[in-house]
Design a protein around this nucleic acid. Sequence first.
DNA 1: TAGTAGTACCTAGCGATATAAAGTACACAA
DNA 2: TTGTGTACTTTATATCGCTAGGTACTACTA
Lengths: 107, 107
Amino acid sequence: MEKMTELLKGVLEGVVLQVIKNKGETYGYIITSDLIELGFEDIVEGTIYAVLLRLEKKGLVETEKRKSDLGPARKFYSINAEGEKYLADFWHKLNFLESQLAKIREN
Amino acid sequence: MEKMTELLKGVLEGVVLQVIKNKGETYGYIITSDLIELGFEDIVEGTIYAVLLRLEKKGLVETEKRKSDLGPARKFYSINAEGEKYLADFWHKLNFLESQLAKIREN
DNA sequence: TAGTAGTACCTAGCGATATAAAGTACACAA
DNA sequence: TTGTGTACTTTATATCGCTAGGTACTACTA
């Protein structure tokens, strides 16, 4: 699927946060490869790291750096209470948007 | 629904084009009020006109100015063959995105 | 006849976001 | 010591929707 980029705007934060929640704890490199595998083929590393920094700045996740034995230290992310609130709101808005879109499409 | 603005990014072009298609022929002022009525409450006139100019510049619509007897001239828009292609592609991408989002949400 | 409301369109500047492109840093094998 | 894979970060750029105006035409009203 080429050039989803505009559609991804505004969705990516919620997506990444949900992935973090699903995994319990994970880090950028894994999230990136997971999303690519999931079908978001042209997502770029830099984009995910930017999203992660944003989530952190907004206080929606907790972070912890841990050494790895096969590369540089990993920065692990987990969702917090604020993040849960954000996620619930995100899916609520998305549901609403999807229903509006369906209405318009069906005339 | 407050602050859908980020979610709307990339969606609005398709939405407006679909509305034009549904109506056969329509103009900015009507599209704006239709969308507001449809639930996109905080959509702004200026945004819609910007989208319309973009659609025109991309060659996805035909336009025609006609005088009105209760205000300034109206600029009517109708979809063309390119626009139909764009729309089909838009819905296809959106369907894909929605299914991916559903997958992620359900773990 | 001046003022106001309703209709209708357009634009400049701003902030948020995703991408492109590059760099940094570490471990290990050839 | 060079390359490969892992892992994170940053800078610059384009797009998009919003803010906040402005212009212009018609009809009604004070």
